[in-house]
Design a protein around this nucleic acid. Structure first.
Lengths: 222, 222
DNA sequence: AATTGTGAAACTTTTCACAGCA
DNA sequence: TGCTGTGAAAAGTTTCACAATT
């Protein structure tokens, strides 16, 4: 095998990275359930992908399986976490402690995946200074003073759409590397940053598209 | 032009559908801001796509622009909403009225996009019978009795991972067509349903992957 | 002069199919 | 025998480039 672990020599597609994350969440459950070994075929049946796709996705990063046997669940889980960078902990700052922000603070899944919300910011004077889950809420005006980009490299924005662009620019100047925001809005992304958007209306509209345009039915009957 | 409005004769990729939804959210803002006409080039600059991509995406469904001029914002917005099926209203049932569920109930964006949360379900006895935003919370045990799949064709599940699979099966039997769930878990999807998963850990892990594996840096220096 | 709509080309991703190995 | 790892083929998606149109 060519040495794929030293350098990423090939652009890996975003679809592959997303699937690796999906394999990882399933492997965590399988390990808890006591499964020791899994074949690409069995994992494919669970995920609804093809076994070739799983083997191909993994092959970009090395060969982790054993011919005739399959993959060791614990070892594969560890290797995918290494690839995704989640073998180490990630400290996160959360901006916006409304309903969505509070939901994220209490999201059980984060802990098991190495994500830790460490600092809280809001612009609501009633919240500033309060302790939530043991963390003091800072004023968003104090962002530049309170964030330590050496420790915290990720930010989650649970704020209204009109505030997202300016905060991304401030976070970029501070040195934050990655941002996830939930507002239904397009933003301009600084080149030194990676920004993702999770937009529930986009998800719902893919549902309504497929329901409205069932492949075998006319779209606009005449 | 071949008549593309009568039947969908070609499989449209999910990426195209997602981009249409993204164009739509921008067109809504542009229209509010008073923009009458937009070229594929200007829209591309806003979205960070290429103009050819935008024209190609639209061309699958017809020709909505005017050569030399561009697209009428209001007309294009209307046509994309028709394609996505959001020119008509969609009634949604929401299961799980915790922090995330409450955030979704108060999500301003839904109203302007034709999404209306009409029925609420939870398994917490303290919530059942209470009115939230004018809607009574039902017991999830009453799902089959209270849901009218003629009216409500979409469900949003804001519930713990272990409850998602069984609810998808119950919703399928009731006749719900589309489901969006947020839990970090793979589920088996009945063929007659469309199910989407929005998993924040997947989004965060694409961030950590890119930060960890910056294309020009060694991944595992030796 | 500006910009769409679109075939064709280029590129990317997935699937196939089988050699190689436990 | 069973299952991985992977080149090669197939399928799918994006970009190019330009005729057509306002």
């Amino acid at each position: 095998m060519k040495d794929k672990t030293t350098f990423i020599r090939q652009k890996i597609s975003d679809s592959t990275i997303r699937r690796l994350s999906i394999y990882l969440r399933t492997l965590i459950i399988l390990e808890k359930g006591g499964t020791v070994t899994i074949s690409s075929r069995k994992l494919a049946d669970i995920e609804g992908f093809t076994s070739a796709q799983i083997r191909k996705d993994l092959s970009y990063f090395g060969s982790f399986g054993r011919r005739g046997l399959g993959y060791n669940v614990k070892a594969l889980k560890k290797r995918i976490a290494e690839i995704l960078g989640t073998n180490k902990k990630w400290d996160i700052i959360l901006i916006g402690i409304g309903r969505l922000g509070s939901a994220l603070m209490n999201y059980e899944e984060f802990k098991g995946r190495g994500f830790h919300i460490k600092k809280l910011f809001d612009k609501n004077p009633e919240l500033i200074g309060k302790k939530i889950n043991g963390i003091t809420v800072n004023s968003v005006d104090q962002l530049e003073k309170k964030v330590n980009p050496k420790r915290e490299s990720l930010a989650i924005l649970a704020i209204p759409p009109q505030d997202v662009q300016s905060l991304i620019e401030r976070l970029n100047l501070i040195g934050i590397k990655g941002v996830l925001y939930f507002a239904s809005r397009t933003v301009t992304v600084p080149k030194s940053m990676i920004v993702r958007n999770e937009d529930t209306t986009v998800e719902l509209e893919t549902l309504t598209y497929h329901i409205t345009n069932r492949t075998d039915r006319p779209v606009k009957p005449m």
